[in-house]
């Protein structure tokens, strides 16, 4: 569905007040995402994961140099096509909860998202209410303002915004950050359901391998703006001998010894263990 070939990205910075330099933040990134698949991009902070997401959507700030090719559904993804497809075929679940407008009621924001995806104002309201119901936000929370929500609820509002767009590719930027395990599993399961149930492609960006492995089919490890390795999720087991690079193996082995079960059952199991 989405094919990224040799994507490089440079952003400007000023070494002093007259000399502009270019910092290479992405270098030769290639990956491919298929329909019905959750593809995780894992890397440390500053590895370029969020910039990759913004580059795919064409949301980067103005002075940047970008090379490489993007293809979406078989056709080149140019800036004009990105603009056309944003909100319709490409959706973003942003990293920051500040993406919710503090002055607007939640339901209204989601219905705006639906309008931007092509709904009429009347059907957008219904769609928004349905989507928010789907993510278990009650009428009170729907009519509340963002600052009145907990982190997990705000995350679900953002997920509902991506949901109403009916996008084929959903880019989820750190959706699990700052949530307790149950809330996290709820959000991750919602993403997995989008891929499994509705045949969408999900690009899951996270810094934590443990969040990615339960739902992802394939994992791309990024480091300092480069793709280190793309491996099937099944390769992350045992000693990590299925992994080709040292960095990926080190990342795997550095995890605390943990069972990576299905998040649907993991919390139940944990609850049972406690009992």
């Amino acid at each position: 569905m989405l094919k990224v070939e040799h994507l490089s990205l440079q952003l400007p910075y000023y070494a002093n007040w007259w000399r502009r330099c270019w910092a290479e933040v992405l270098r030769d990134v290639s990956l491919e995402i298929h329909p019905g698949e959750v593809h995780a991009v894992v890397g440390a902070s500053g590895a370029g994961k969020s910039l990759l997401a913004h580059a795919l959507l064409g949301l980067l700030p103005a002075p940047c140099r970008q090379t490489g090719r993007l293809h979406f559904q078989g056709q080149p993804l140019t800036a004009a096509r990105q603009r056309q497809l944003r909100g319709r075929d490409l959706a973003l679940i942003p990293q920051s909860l500040n993406a919710l407008d503090p002055l607007v009621r939640n339901q209204r924001q989601v219905s705006w998202a639906a309008q931007r995806a092509g709904h009429t104002p009347a059907s957008a309201r219904d769609t928004a209410t349905q989507a928010l119901d789907h993510y278990q936000l009650n009428a009170g929370a729907q009519q509340a303002f963002p600052h009145q929500l907990s982190g997990g609820m705000a995350r679900r509002v953002l997920t509902a915004m991506a949901h109403v767009s009916r996008a084929q590719l959903i880019i989820a930027d750190e959706p699990s950050v700052g949530l307790d395990p149950q809330q996290r599993d709820r959000v991750l399961n919602a993403l997995a359901a989008l891929a499994r149930g509705e045949g969408k492609a999900v690009l899951l960006i996270t810094h934590d391998l443990r969040h990615a492995l339960p739902i992802a089919q394939r994992v791309t490890i990024m480091r300092q703006g480069r793709c280190v390795e793309t491996a099937p999720a099944a390769a992350f087991q045992g000693e990590g001998s299925g992994l080709n690079t040292d960095y990926a193996q080190a990342l795997w082995q550095a995890l605390p010894d943990n069972q990576f079960g299905n998040p649907l059952t993991s919390t139940d199991e944990q609850a049972q263990n406690v009992a």
């Binding site: 913004h54 944003r86 909100g87 490409l90 942003p94 407008d101 915004m161």
Partner: peptide
């Protein structure tokens, strides 16, 4: 982030300026 999110949803410049910006 508010505007970035709106742009990611396919909002036009005018849409963002009117719905979010004016408020």
């Amino acid at each position: 982030p508010v505007a970035t999110q709106a742009f990611a949803q396919g909002a036009s410049r005018r849409d963002v300026a009117w719905r979010h910006g004016a408020r």
